[in-house]
Amino acid sequence: MDIDTGAESKQDMRRRIRAARREMSEEQREQAGSVFRDTLSALPQLTMGGTVAVYYSVGTEPDTHKLIATLWKQGTYVLLPVFLPNRDLDWAAYDGPDSLESTDQGLLEPTGRRYGVDAVRRCAAVVCPALAVDQRGLRLGKGAGCYDRTLSRIGPNTRTIAVIYDTELVDAVPAEAHDRPVHGVVTPQRGVHWF
């Protein structure tokens, strides 16, 4: 069952989706993470393009840990975000699980050299989080705006894809002028859908 978006505000929609994610079992999240890994690691945009930026999932977010490990083992240069005090994202290389450290915000971030906020311009693909994505490719994020800023910096050949659960591909999300669309989404049952 898709989440009803009606005339909800962004805050109401976020609350509703977060509640639905909390109701998912650990087994469901684990299985979804395996599907995300298998589906995305088969895409040429992620395996043949050289550098890929991927979010490192936390909590009930769709799992990207398996995807990151697989891409890294296949030789893809993986960049992970580093959350900056101004709510922007810097980027640093993933060099295996030992290259990550916990932050005060409860995130795991790479400890290596940082490449700057514009590093995504040179990426073949950016895999980003979302709470929901609509049929136009507009995504509902957590509200900090960091991925909208990131998506505004991508290069002309960079493909962007959001990772969501099946119920989170909706007809419409509340949008504002600064919101940036993604090129596609991946869900556990529907696979990859390009806009």
Rank of each mutant, 00 (worst) to 15 (best):
Y56P: 00
G137Y: 14
A93F: 00
A130D: 08
I161Y: 01
A130G: 11
P174G: 13
G137V: 15
A144D: 06
R149T: 11
R121H: 12
V133T: 12
V186S: 12
Y147P: 10
P62Y: 05
E61S: 00
Y94K: 03
Q74A: 14
L131H: 05
D12N: 13
G143F: 06
D118F: 08
V82K: 02
L46R: 03
E23R: 05
A132G: 11
A144I: 12
V35H: 13
T158K: 09
E8I: 07
L169C: 07
L151K: 14
P188D: 03
L108E: 04
M1P: 15
I164D: 02
A7F: 10
R190D: 15
D4M: 07
V78N: 04
I68W: 05
T70P: 00
S57P: 00
L79G: 01
I17L: 03
A177C: 14
T76S: 07
T158D: 07
D98W: 08
E101K: 12
G33T: 09
Q31Y: 09
P129Q: 06
T39Y: 05
L138T: 12
V186H: 11
S152K: 15
P62C: 10
Q28L: 05
D95Q: 10
T5I: 10
A124K: 07
M13Y: 03
T60Q: 01
D134W: 13
R22M: 03
T76L: 02
V78Q: 04
G33E: 02
T70W: 02
M24Y: 01
H178V: 15
I161C: 06
T51A: 08
Q105P: 00
L40M: 09
Q31N: 13
K66S: 12
V192W: 13
A119D: 02
Q31S: 13
I154K: 08
S99F: 04
Y56Q: 00
R190I: 09
L169T: 02
T150C: 15
R121Y: 12
M13L: 15
D4K: 12
V185K: 09
E168G: 02
Y94W: 03
R14N: 04
G112F: 04
K142C: 04
A132C: 15
V126H: 08
G96N: 06
G145N: 12
D2M: 12
M48L: 14
R22K: 10
N157W: 12
T64K: 05
K10S: 04
V186Q: 11
P97V: 02
V163Q: 01
L131W: 08
I154P: 07
N157Q: 14
A69G: 12
T158N: 05
V173Y: 09
S41T: 13
P156I: 02
W194V: 15
R113G: 00
A177I: 15
A20P: 00
R113V: 07
G112W: 04
A172E: 14
P156W: 01
V82H: 02
D98E: 14
G112T: 09
K66N: 06
G106C: 02
F195P: 07
V173T: 05
F195S: 10
L138S: 13
R29F: 07
G75H: 14
S25G: 14
I154D: 03
N86A: 13
Y115R: 04
V127P: 02
V126R: 08
E26M: 10
A119Q: 01
A130F: 11
F83S: 10
K66H: 11
G59D: 00
